[in-house]
Design a protein around this nucleic acid. Structure first.
Lengths: 123, 123
DNA sequence: GCTATTGTATCAATCACTTAATACAATCAC
DNA sequence: GTGATTGTATTAAGTGATTGATACAATAGC
């Protein structure tokens, strides 16, 4: 998996987000075992503790679970994964609408703005 | 004007955003004089330096200008204000689409999600 | 010209947070 | 049972950024 980090936010935060997106969107399949903490750490070029901290968040959200010495696994509960994906999307949508409203765009205008956009390919 | 600060981001950042939104959406009219740095500081309950820093950002964006001892004024260039408003909206839209894409929503689905939402009044 | 009010500059300290090193614990595999 | 591999806990230190106190500078207004 590809890791990219900006300098304007903590590593563990970005790690958490990227891991969440990966899990929720199926990069790691439901029930699949994740690479070990140390492995992920080497792969991403960060300290194992940092990975640990990020994964702790995922665990609290029920997206992954831990078998003490066997490793971490993505939950097998596909409904839960889908619900999480949806919840993330809803949250982002909510934030987006709040900000747009402060800028004087109502819901319809905000939606229209999305569709009008040209050439914003997210490489 | 109403100030609200969260604890999860620097004051000057939030101040900057709130001032930008206020200026761009006409809370302070084009050409109007802004309250003095010290006045805003008292009003918002922060240090004058913090206000100064935030306003510096607005100035760099051409939204306000300074007359050394007379105060700060919103630019009289309404086109510029409108352009800034639009640019902010576009930027947010772009971010939103990028994230939604990572979550597996294409542009149309993202837009649809906005319109489906119920009861998300931004009090 | 004097004074009050404006923005500006400087400097320091505190504060919190992130990151890292290291050691511990448990159990799977053989 | 032994060792390798897993996650976990503890602790420290760097580090960097934010905020605040204070002094400076310029000029508008009377």
């Amino acid at each position: 998996m590809e890791w990219t980090f900006r300098a304007d936010a903590p590593l563990y935060t970005q790690l958490c987000e990227q891991l969440t997106f990966a899990v929720v969107s199926g990069v790691f399949a439901a029930g699949e075992r994740l690479p070990a903490v140390r492995e992920l750490a080497v792969d991403a070029g960060v300290n194992p503790n940092t990975v640990q901290r990020a994964l702790g968040e995922l665990e609290r959200g029920g997206l992954v679970y831990t078998l003490r010495t066997a490793g971490r696994f993505v939950t097998a509960d596909k409904a839960r994964l889908e619900a999480a994906r949806r919840a993330l999307a809803e949250a982002r949508a909510g934030e987006f609408l709040r900000v747009m409203e402060k800028l004087g765009y109502d819901r319809a205008q905000a939606a229209a703005l999305l569709e009008e956009r040209e050439g914003d390919e997210a490489t």
